[in-house]
Nucleic acid binder design. Structure first.
Length: 134
RNA sequence: GCAGUUGGACGGCUUGUCGCUGCCCCAUUAGGGGGAGAGGAAAGUCCGGGCAACAAAGGGCAUCCCACUUGUUAACGGCAAGCAAUCCGCGAGGGUUGAGCAGUGGAGAAGAAAAUAACCGCCCCUUUUUCGGAAGGUGGUAAGGGUGAGAAGGUGAGGUAAGAGCUCACCAGUCGUGUGGUGACACACGAGCUGUCUGCCUUGGGAGUUGUAAGGUCAUGUAAACCGGCGUUUGAGGGUAGCCCGCCCAAGCCGGAGGGUAGACCGCUGGAGCCACAUCGGUGACGGGUGGCGUAGAUAAAUGACAAGCACCUCUUUCGGGAGGCACAGAACCCGGCUUAUAGGCCGACUGCUUUC
């Protein structure tokens, strides 16, 4: 798996129901960088894949119309795709995987530039904390 | 030219960088290449079907839905063309309503009275009397009054004590006959003498339930739950859409394979398919014919992000330009409709006003 390049395949997403349950009901840690709330959890050691996997959620109560929800999801996804190299080095050092959930909080649309900067801050913080855990 | 009515089609384009989901090709792998990839409403989930599962011998009642006519269709509560009444508009046009000459019930307030109409009024006769008249009594009268959605068909004339479809003319309604129309109805002639709204009811037509998270296959695999076969007593009990009639089931034995959880695959896109035609039939919805096309299939859910340029719109201008904007909205089994949202411009037909010839 080429995790170094700026791609984002299905293997890099959290899509199994059990994984989602583990992330939210398990001991996932969280913090907020408005308008984002980030929940993350180091993946279990039984998972041979050391890459990061993500999940993006935009609740219906933020945007009633699906077109706006899609817009936000795509902004977050692109921001992560272009900036995930911030995380990969620390993951390689610790040889661990991580599951991350990005949850949108605002009821307004933001510019892509703004979303990208927030995602960068979030990724840097996760990388920092992962290193501290080691 | 301006204002408007109505129908139809559209609802951005190009390039670059980095990506996503199927498909095809190359490659041992890693990967590389090619091509495809949201809408007119994809929305609301309001109707109608296809498809699937479950249930079901059949009949009656009840319940629910539909309701001018004819057509159209797989079907519809849709659509098309018409009919009648009524309302809006100068007009092109648009809105609303629409089974029933059977039976039976109801109608607040207002008003004398809401269907066996006499409160006021009008008139005849009569009694008393202060002999102008007034008061009382027996009757007649639906022309006038005000109330109301509706007042005993309307207007006018004759008639009368006063009046009345009492009679006549015209008009509206009802019924009968004839003519035209597939029909709703229209027209002509004749007869009789005629309230409005609404409930039950009646008539005709129709309706099983649940929705692709349906449902199926695979792997894992322990029960009393399921299926098939054999077999059986009693009609108690259960099932059969709410009730009735009617029908069906069962204890036991043998065999098969199952429930729940998470996962993969099928369902899953070739279909009432789309496009074209100075084609044929039809006023039209629509139907036929000929030719062509291969046209999204995701599964926590792809169809994108960013940048530049061009269109288009608004504002501004020192006429070079500058600033801002660019709708509603995102497939989830598939179709036919309806409803709602929608920046902007485009095309056709028609109406009114105005200008020029």
């Amino acid at each position: 798996m080429n995790t170094g390049s700026a791609t984002l395949r299905k293997a890099e997403r959290v899509y199994k129901r059990s994984d989602v349950k583990r992330l939210f009901e398990g001991n996932g840690k969280s913090f907020s960088i408005f308008p984002l709330r980030v929940v993350y959890m180091p993946a279990g050691s039984e998972n041979e894949d050391s890459s990061a996997r993500i999940l993006i959620s935009v609740p219906k109560r933020c945007f009633k119309r699906a077109a706006k929800r899609n817009r936000v999801k795509r902004q977050i996804r692109e921001s992560y795709r272009l900036n995930k190299h911030l995380l990969s080095q620390s993951l390689k050092d610790s040889s661990k995987g991580v599951m991350i959930a990005f949850i949108w909080l605002d009821k307004e649309l933001h510019t892509s530039e703004e979303v990208a900067s927030k995602v960068k801050i979030a990724l840097n913080r996760i990388a920092e904390k992962m290193n501290n855990c080691q």
